[in-house]
Amino acid sequence: MAEQEYQKYYVPEQSPWPIVGAVALFLIAVGAGNFVIESTKGESGFGGWILLAGIVTLLVMLIGWFNNQINESMNGMHSDQLGRSYRQGMSWFIFSEVMFFAAFFGALFYARVIAVPWLAGEGNNAMTNEVLWPGFEDMWPLTKTPGGTETTAMGWMGLPLYNTIILLVSSFTCHFAHVALEKEQRGKLKLMLGLTVLLGCIFLFLQVEEYVHAYREMNLTLQSGVYGNTFFLLTGFHGMHVTLGTIILIVLWLRIMKGHFTPKNHFAFQAGSWYWHFVDVVWVMLFFFVYIL
């Protein structure tokens, strides 16, 4: 064995950052919990501040941890095997995100294919309709709930379509950036990644526009029954992921400006671009199932 070429696996010595991260999550959970209770009751309290403290702690932790990580990586302490661990870890993380969205898509399908038709009397549910929700009719988008709340459906033309095109294009620019990085074309890399960030920001801006439009003019809100619920939770969580993805890409762009990454050694870039593609795929699913169908 000893004769064989062997790259040592980097087992880091102690690190203060994980415990800081744990404290941050603690503050976030306590803060968010209290904030939700206080804000829905209209009371004042410390929840929001604790939440803010948690978020700040988390940011400090992320900066510290990543700095540490970047230094190690730039000093060549990371073996190929460690690189594989990171890639696999990132892939499994994305898989877990897929399953998170699956829960909400599942809710959408169930509500649409099972719950709403049953409330309207489908199958052996005639009496449910007759006795509990008389006059309720099956429809999707559910613009009139069994309880009588009315709303309007969001079409797929206009903003949603533009947003789809924007995200699809950004997937390509992100890919071109990756290719440029591997070919050591730094100028093109900066341009393409910058474009991706820009497209991400435009997407988010338009998404906010859409929400404003839905709330102000369409009477489509988070409270508009299960159509509004699935609409806002799916697009909302997606929007949060786009925000996160954009921040990641901005950090990558700054690192590239500082001359980081080589054609061979760029795990962070790869992870960021995987994440971006994942966010795009989720949007395509969303566009199809939430808007078009």
Binding site: A107, A111, A115, V116, L119, L132, W133, L142, T145, P146, G147, T149, L222, Q223, G225, V226, Y227, G228, N229, T230, L233
Partner: peptide
């Protein structure tokens, strides 16, 4: 929201 509430279609 009314994911789990029939009045809202859940």
């Amino acid at each position: 929201t009314s994911f789990f509430d029939a009045a809202g279609g859940g």
